[in-house]
């Protein structure tokens, strides 16, 4: 996970970089406010940010405010660090949009771990939401496809009833009918995923419709045996 450290003090940056790298973070460092804003404006920029409150140019409070203003759907986790530790300072920091305002290094370490957890959860939620959207759209599409599929497969079936087996186009019509039926199977499977099995099948980023067994389509299979 990427983390941005904005601190004008070289020693602080070096210490934090060493510790955070050891924890497995991909650490980016900047020495002032404008550089911090520039860094987070990059695509795929760090979601976890450690801001020094006292920096030249733009201070941590102002950077924090601007970061919050520019935020869209996925908020950053911002930790403000400072030597100023009065109640009023904390309130200022939190009001500017900081998530945490730790007073010492132990607390900072704990807050960074919290931040990592929160960002991780947010990432998962966003990924799941995106997948759900895609799967739902696929389901809606299948519903629409079933109408023309019905017409194609039934028309092919009717043609096959009229044609002699040795008729020139018999095999071709049979091919159309067979593949329309295959498409029908696919739409049923996709609809089963979207309506019944979404969560079960969204354990990863791949939804394998062919991996669905017949039990994956409980209500759809109801009545399909021709016995009313």
């Amino acid at each position: 996970m990427k983390i941005l450290v904005a601190d004008d003090d070289l020693t602080s940056r070096a210490v934090l970089t060493a510790v955070l790298s050891k924890w497995g973070f991909d650490v980016r460092t900047v020495a002032d406010g404008p550089a911090a804003l520039e860094e987070v404006s990059e695509p795929d920029s760090p979601k976890l940010v450690v801001l020094d409150r006292m920096m030249p140019g733009l201070d941590g409070l102002e950077v924090c405010r601007r970061l919050r203003e520019g935020e869209t759907s996925m908020p950053r986790y911002i930790i403000m660090v400072t030597t100023l530790g009065s109640s009023g300072d904390v309130v200022d920091g939190l009001t500017a949009g900081a998530d945490d305002y730790p007073f010492n290094n132990d607390e900072l370490a704990a807050r960074i771990r919290v931040g990592r957890r929160v960002i991780g959860l947010q990432d998962n939620a966003v990924e799941r939401e995106g997948l759900n959207g895609v799967v739902e759209m696929a389901g809606a599409l299948c519903h629409e496809l079933n109408q023309p599929l019905q017409v194609i497969s039934s028309t092919a079936e009717l043609l096959l009833m009229d044609l002699e087996q040795d008729a020139p186009c018999f095999q071709e019509v049979q091919t159309i009918e067979r593949h329309a039926a295959r498409l029908g199977d696919i739409t049923q499977k996709i609809m089963a995923i979207t309506d019944y099995k979404t969560r079960d099948y969204l354990t990863g980023t791949i939804v394998d419709i062919h991996g669905l067994n017949e039990e994956g389509t409980p209500d759809l299979s109801h009545g399909q045996d021709g016995r009313p």
């Binding site: 079933n146 109408q147 609809m191 209500d219 399909q224």
Partner: peptide
């Protein structure tokens, strides 16, 4: 074509004897 959008109880409540998917 929308069978999976409905629950079995929807069909039963409306009075259908059975339902089939397109």
């Amino acid at each position: 074509g929308y069978a999976s959008r409905f629950q079995l109880t929807d069909f039963q409540e409306a009075g259908f004897d059975n339902f089939y998917s397109k």
